[in-house]
């Protein structure tokens, strides 16, 4: 189920001559698209890891009105068709949208910033849902023990809580990254797909296919595949390093 389609992509791509392949991915348009997809996804995953952990923290540690509603809303980006997310976000961020009208700097539709917003929106739940259960299972005694041993609240967080959440945060980061790299539906709508600016790699693949450039499409796909595997492997190694006791 997983290996077969991946193998097909690689085989198809390897059918292209080396020079053809290089030309497909080394053009400025392709490089820009790959850069936006991977750079944007890394940035998005980093932002989401911080924000998602804060959201999970609020949901686990605090009681506030509307808490269960907020907990349900976390899953909204999962439930929402990505095209709907794309339309909604691009309306909000258009110069005449609720957010975009506040200040021109916030009118992010059709700009790389808009792409980042879309990526962040669709991949936030991964971090929240990875960190939340681990946070719930932290024994309160462990924090009490740290406090009794003289740790101030900030030290308790840095020395005891954060290391316990490390593995879950890395998992959330990896999933968030993977989702952002591959995001198509919402990005294709909000970005306007301007080459060298807002065009992402998945959209580029789609465009190449539209132009019957199957080989070009699969070569870019292969590069994405390799980069994704490398990223996930690096995260896996980080987790293995100290993860088994975390």
């Amino acid at each position: 189920m997983v290996v077969l389609p991946l193998a097909a992509v690689v085989v198809k791509a390897s059918g292209a001559g080396v020079s053809d392949a290089l030309r497909s991915v080394s053009g400025p348009i392709a490089l820009s698209a790959l850069g936006l997809s991977f750079g944007g996804a890394l940035l998005t995953a980093a932002v989401n890891t911080v924000m998602g952990t804060i959201v999970a923290w609020a949901l686990v540690r605090y009681e506030f009105p509307g808490k269960s509603l907020m907990n349900a809303l976390v899953d909204l980006p999962f439930a929402l068709p990505t095209a709907v997310a794309g339309i909604t976000l691009s309306e909000l961020l258009s110069p005449r949208g609720w957010v975009g009208a506040v200040h021109p700097a916030l009118a992010a539709s059709f700009s790389p910033a808009g792409v980042l917003v879309a990526m962040t929106f669709v991949s936030m739940p991964f971090v929240v849902r990875a960190v939340q259960p681990v946070l719930q299972q932290l024994e309160p005694e462990v924090e009490e023990a740290a406090a009794l041993l003289g740790a101030r609240p900030r030290q308790v967080f840095g020395h005891v809580i954060l290391p316990s959440l490390r593995a879950a945060m890395l998992t959330g980061f990896a999933l968030s990254f993977a989702r952002s790299v591959g995001e198509f539906g919402s990005v294709v709508i909000i970005s306007g797909n301007i080459p060298l600016s807002t065009l992402t790699a998945p959209v580029l693949i789609f465009q190449r296919l539209e132009e019957y450039d199957t080989v070009g499409a699969t070569v870019i796909a292969t590069v994405m595949l390799a980069a994704s595997i490398l990223t996930l492997a690096a995260i896996g190694l980080l987790q293995r390093e100290r993860g088994q006791h975390g």
């Binding site: 024994e139 005694e141 462990v142 023990a145 740290a146 316990s164 490390r166 100290r242 975390g246």
Partner: peptide, 8 residues
């Protein structure tokens, strides 16, 4: 239950 720091 000791509340040891598991990651240390």
């Amino acid at each position: 239950h000791y509340a040891l720091f598991k990651h240390m």
